[in-house]
């Protein structure tokens, strides 16, 4: 276990393409549902406890060595929006390239040849964490943090929100992230023994609907 590797993987500058995605924030801003720091916080909290917790559990399970194919199918079933499935696989493919170059590993090579068009990003993240010598808790934290820091950064650009306010939102989500990361590890351990059906399936209706609306726009700042 190396703490420095966790910083490398969690760094927003890690070249995995995440900066091009707003995590649904662009659609929510356009719909007038995110207008300030308070509504951004509510958006991020909702995301954290729905698609965020699902992704963190998948990442933790992958870091524990659960079969990536099964995890990928479980992620598909928990992602009804095709636009979000496409985004998750695109992000998975980009993370795969960065991770293989950074922490070469036979497991990442095998995953890349099994999913040439990309596996769901949390599956790749879990295996990248393994390759970096990190554990399931690290994978869960990376997944959760990325799931809220992406929208927060995007809203700074979309609304001209004060970056100090956006960072304050992330700090106020810390307790929730700590709790959910622990839950994700416990769930990941249950997946090892009981299979992928024990993964949570919490969903956020407006993230799904907004993602499809966003995918149909002719001009947009972010890919998703």
């Amino acid at each position: 276990m190396t703490r420095a590797a966790l910083l490398v993987l969690a760094d927003g500058r890690f070249p995995a393409g995440g900066h091009a995605h707003s995590g649904g924030a662009e659609a929510a801003v356009r719909a007038g549902r995110i207008t300030d720091a308070a509504s951004l916080e509510s958006f991020c909290r909702g995301r954290l406890h729905t698609s965020g917790v699902v992704a963190a559990c998948v990442a933790a399970a992958a870091a524990l060595g659960v079969d990536p194919g099964q995890l990928d199918r479980a992620a598909d079933a928990r992602t009804p929006s095709p636009a979000l499935r496409v985004a998750a696989r695109r992000l998975g493919r980009q993370l795969m390239r960065a991770a293989r170059a950074t922490w070469p590993s036979p497991e990442l090579d095998a995953l890349a040849s099994r999913f040439p068009k990309g596996a769901h990003q949390p599956v790749v993240l879990g295996l990248a964490a393994r390759a970096a010598g990190l554990g399931p808790l690290d994978a869960a934290y990376c997944s959760l943090y990325e799931g809220v820091s992406g929208p927060a950064t995007a809203v700074v650009r979309l609304l001209g929100l004060d970056p100090f306010d956006a960072t304050g939102v992330l700090a106020r989500l810390s307790d929730d992230m700590d709790r959910v990361a622990q839950e994700a590890v416990e769930t990941g351990e249950r997946v090892v023994t009981d299979g992928v059906d024990v993964l949570p399936a919490r969903s956020a209706p407006l993230l799904e609907i907004g993602a499809e609306a966003h995918a149909a726009w002719a001009v947009r700042l972010f890919a998703s």
């Binding site: 909702g46 993964l199 399936a201 919490r202």
Partner: peptide
């Protein structure tokens, strides 16, 4: 399994359920 989704809402549901991402 082609669909597995859970909706949680109301008092005591995880935070943000009625926010801009949820309802």
């Amino acid at each position: 399994c082609v669909l597995d989704q859970e909706l949680a809402c109301g008092p005591g549901a995880p935070g943000g359920w009625d926010g801009p991402a949820g309802l």
